[in-house]
Design a protein around this nucleic acid. Structure first.
Lengths: 197, 197
DNA sequence: CCTCACATGTAATGAGTTACATGATTGG
DNA sequence: CCAATCATGTAACTCATTACATGTGAGG
């Protein structure tokens, strides 16, 4: 048990915010702000977080001010200079504290599902293109995960990926399986056929 | 096609925000602010949206100011007075406009998955309790959806529910199937066994 | 009696997004 | 030559959350 005097606050008081996210990523290995962003966009964290540069860079500065991360400059010829951050001992303690907080419910905002729910009101061609886009995206995600799976990794890290894979597959199967029905309902909707435009 | 002069802006310019959400809910039938909230919490919209009272009530006021919704007072004996909102013709047009915008990617923030990803750093008992909570929640969601399915509804509305059901089931199966492995990894983690407290 | 569900609203606060600002290098 | 990728950062802004404020009636 950490004594009261050694207690280091988890970055504020919910499990996940951009600071904790950065600590988590850095726990897996040093990285630049740019890389952290990428990991939340299409990388290993993309199934459950997202953060913009405007959030990540200030978060890293704040973490540094609190001594939870440190950085060094790195220059590869032919590349811009980058700041490679690492987690410190204090940072590790803060991360662990955050990880032991009670989690909040997931936040899911899906504009796609909202449109799907009201597909009889939208233009059929729009519904169709949204469906196609989504299916293509799911296929890309599944391919990416499959690739990651084959190149090893294992251990705990694979749970999040397996979880993502299970969900993507379920979504994909559902959408492909219902595509015709959805398009059919959209086609018979209140808007009727597509207006010329 | 709506002529330029008849164009009514979709509530600002992304598909989903609290205003559009309210319009969508009201399109299915009149409702009070309180009811809208409930639907995003555990109701028919809970798989893909969420909004607090602090967002819904101002949104309804703004929609009313724009003539997109109207309301009447309703008093049931033994209940507080409530404002029952309905969508107007203009509101319908605005909703349809929003529905035809290109959707953004889903936003998913899962503190649970974040903890799962780093389960070897959290206290094993904490990981276990988070897992149990999540599995129980999924079971409740599935039971609720099953109930809704049996009491009819059909048509387009069921797509969102079926989609939710597919995803919940995938999550549930995954978590239950991996529960022992996850607990095992958590138990062998860096924190080791639970400290006394 | 106390808490929970019902019901509406406002004010303070905040976390994060978007847009801006800048710049090097590589590949088509 | 232009676009894309790599790379860091700030300022303005916005949307929504949290907390506050208030009140009724039912049920344990």
């Amino acid at each position: 048990m950490l004594g009261a005097h050694t207690r280091i606050d988890a970055a504020e008081n919910d499990v996940m915010n951009v600071k904790t996210l950065c600590l988590g990523v850095l726990e897996l290995g040093e990285a630049s702000g740019y890389e952290i962003r990428k990991m939340t966009q299409d990388g290993r964290f993309s199934h459950f977080v997202d953060a913009s540069y405007g959030a990540i860079y200030p978060a890293l500065s704040a973490l540094e001010a609190d001594g939870l991360v440190s950085w060094r400059e790195e220059r590869h010829p032919g590349r811009p200079e980058r700041k490679v951050y690492s987690i410190t001992e204090r940072g590790r303690v803060a991360l662990i504290a955050a990880l032991n907080e009670e989690t909040r419910d997931d936040v899911i905002k899906s504009e796609f599902l909202f449109v799907l729910r009201f597909c009889e009101l939208a233009r059929p061609s729009h519904v169709k293109s949204e469906l196609d886009r989504r299916i293509a995206w799911l296929e890309a995600q599944l391919a990416r995960l499959e690739e990651a799976r084959q190149s090893g990794c294992g251990t705990a890290s694979s749970f999040a990926q397996g979880y993502g894979q299970a969900i993507y597959r379920a979504m994909h199967e559902y959408l492909v399986g219902n595509r015709h029905d959805i398009e059919d309902i959209a086609g018979r909707g209140l808007i009727g056929r597509d207006a010329a435009e």
